[in-house]
């Protein structure tokens, strides 16, 4: 019996859904293959999250609690992750593919001599490793990869697996950890534009995304109203984040966030492959664009050819009626 370990990422006091998706998958694989599904929570208040993690089938939960984990910093996180790998000796160690994961995954692999595959959309166990599918070439192509070894790291794109509750009574193991701030060479000075209680794009059920077509004040007001009616997260194409019109954290695409909501409404977005790479896995895609030949219409389930300033006001009114 081997250990399948999942890293539970906590940001702003909340567990990232992507981590629980990975844990759900790990628990399923553990049951099917006679392995043990375990989890590790590394946070300033790690023990607060044990109950939530137990719901997804972890039979053992490691906690590493230290005030240093209040904000993401790669040095202490790497130290904690290396320590838990020593302790748990996982055959597979899974992560939700967040920006914090991307910051440390390569370093952790180098540190522990583990094989690593990042940003996968599917993974399976083999006798001596894992087989995965990853989107490549701006997500136009899927590549099959395999990794072999005693310790394998894998990060999984958010939305790749459904949450699946299978409650257990987990053994909780608190790992002794201390970190002296004088060990920090890199220093975190401040965090600008912290998202606070905004809806996380990678976890949103509904996303309203704006492109070049919606760059002026009137366009911005309309998309904000549309998002508010639908209780949606706001997203943007690179054109708008680069122009400084929308916050860079809202960028969707190969460079920005990869999202998979139930409903994606693309307003004034032409649909360059780099943008599509970040949103093509949405369940239902609606595109509003005045150019009938915009590539976004090739992937949209519902395309509205028209001027967004004329289409959005009645669209918002209709949605309000449906919602009420």
């Amino acid at each position: 019996m081997s250990t399948l370990l999942t890293h539970i990422a906590v940001s702003d006091g909340k567990i990232k859904r992507a981590s629980l998706e990975v844990l759900s998958r790990m628990t399923q694989l553990a049951e099917a293959n006679g392995h043990s599904s375990e989890a590790v929570i590394i946070d300033a208040n790690a023990s607060d999250h044990v109950d939530e993690v137990q719901k997804y089938g972890a039979s053992k939960i490691y906690t590493i609690e230290d005030a240093i984990f209040k904000n993401h910093q790669n040095t202490p996180l790497l130290k904690a992750l290396s320590k838990v790998m020593d302790e748990a000796d996982p055959f597979v160690f899974g992560f939700g593919s967040t920006e914090s994961t991307k910051d440390i995954l390569g370093a952790l692999a180098a540190n522990t001599d583990a094989a690593v595959l990042s940003d996968v959309s599917e993974f399976e166990l083999t006798d001596n490793g894992i087989e995965v599918t990853r989107p490549v070439m701006a997500a136009k192509i899927l590549s099959d990869n395999k990794a072999t070894g005693d310790n394998i790291l894998v990060s999984v794109r958010s939305g790749s697996y459904d949450l699946n509750e299978s409650p257990t009574e987990a053994e909780v193991v608190d790992i002794d950890f201390s970190f002296d701030e004088s060990e920090l060479k890199a220093t975190l000075r401040e965090i600008i534009g912290a998202s606070g209680d905004k809806i996380d794009l990678t976890e949103a059920e509904t996303i309203v995304a704006a492109g070049r077509g919606a760059k002026d004040d009137e366009g911005q007001e309309l998309i904000e109203e549309l998002a508010s009616v639908l209780n949606a997260a706001l997203g943007a194409s690179r054109a708008l984040t680069e122009a400084g019109i929308m916050d860079p954290s809202l960028q969707i695409g190969q460079t920005g966030k990869v999202v998979s909501p139930q409903l994606y409404i693309a307003v004034g977005i032409s649909g360059a492959i780099q943008h599509v790479a970040g949103m093509a896995n949405s369940k239902v895609i609606v595109a509003i664009n005045k150019d009938p030949d915009a590539p976004i219409f090739d992937i949209a389930d519902y395309g509205i050819v028209g001027d967004l300033y004329k289409v959005l006001p009645p669209f918002i009114e209709e949605l309000k009626k449906i919602k009420s």
Binding site: D12, N71, E99, P248
Partner: peptide
């Protein structure tokens, strides 16, 4: 200036 999960982190690297 690093784009992180929670916002833009300002990090000093020696």
């Amino acid at each position: 200036k690093r784009q992180g999960d929670a916002g833009q982190e300002i990090i000093g690297l020696p």
